[in-house]
Simulated scan of single mutants.
Amino acid sequence: MTAKRQGPGRPPIPTDRILDAALQILDEGGPDALSLREVARVLSSSTSTLYRHVSGRAALVDLVIDRMIGEVDLREETYSDIAWDDACRALATSFFEALSRHGAAAGLLVGSIPMGPNGMALRERLLDALMGAGFPPETCARAMASLAHYCVGFAMQSPAEREERDSSGASGALAATRAAGPRLASVAEYLPRPLHDEFAFGLDMLLRGLAATRQHQDLDG
């Protein structure tokens, strides 16, 4: 029997379109909604076509994570002429904002180590700032990990939680706080704070702690 000639199949899909679709799914449904089947549906394509570009969901997640990190300003000239703590603050804030733009997608980074080119570039920028300030390699590695975990933890808060925290409809929570005890009542007027305010405050505390660590190291040296 003569074998039938195979057709050309579906045309390939640009990787940027695949990642755009994946981010759309994440923005709308969160990490659990992301699958090759769902991406294929959004693109009116097939999973077999997607397998030409990615080997599976894990590979797609890696690409999506690196795409999100690519929204961080990683240009060397942005950080070359500013103090180390200002560089770290700018990088961490930009990373947090990049993750926050995609809702619960930050959850993809839990248990994941970003190994794409943008993830590597972000680490290099942080380490350049820290090492340029004289921190020893071990301190730099620990500081880099702590800053990354801090950013991911804040970005993982759901959009609904953010709206509740940032809205003016927190009177019930404040009333409960006042009823809890005199200490809580004394700070009730300052609660809750907008998420970005809390992030900036905590980040400043982390960087002050690093500055104090460097001073101790200088004295010990």
Rank of each mutant, 00 (worst) to 15 (best):
C151H: 00
R52Y: 13
A105K: 02
G153D: 14
L60W: 11
M131N: 09
A40V: 03
A129E: 07
A141F: 08
Q215K: 15
I113V: 12
E71Y: 07
E76T: 13
G134C: 08
A173T: 08
E28H: 13
G107D: 12
E161M: 14
P31G: 11
R193I: 05
D220E: 13
E161R: 14
F199T: 02
E38P: 01
L26C: 09
L60S: 03
A175W: 08
T49D: 05
A87G: 11
Q217R: 10
K4W: 08
I69Y: 02
E189F: 12
F135T: 01
A145I: 12
R52L: 14
R178I: 05
Y150K: 02
A175C: 08
S45M: 09
M1N: 10
A211W: 09
V64A: 12
D16W: 03
L109C: 05
H216G: 06
A129T: 01
A148W: 10
A40D: 11
G9K: 13
W84Y: 13
D218I: 14
D128L: 08
S171L: 13
A170N: 11
G107M: 11
E77R: 11
T177N: 09
G111C: 09
A83N: 11
R41N: 06
G153M: 10
V39Q: 12
D73S: 09
L207V: 09
P14F: 09
A141G: 05
T177I: 15
A160Y: 05
Q217M: 15
H196G: 02
L174C: 12
Y51T: 13
D27V: 00
P12M: 07
M120P: 00
S167M: 07
T213R: 15
L210K: 07
S158P: 03
R52P: 02
W84T: 00
L207C: 10
Y190E: 12
R5Q: 13
T177G: 06
A133L: 05
T2W: 08
F199G: 00
L203W: 01
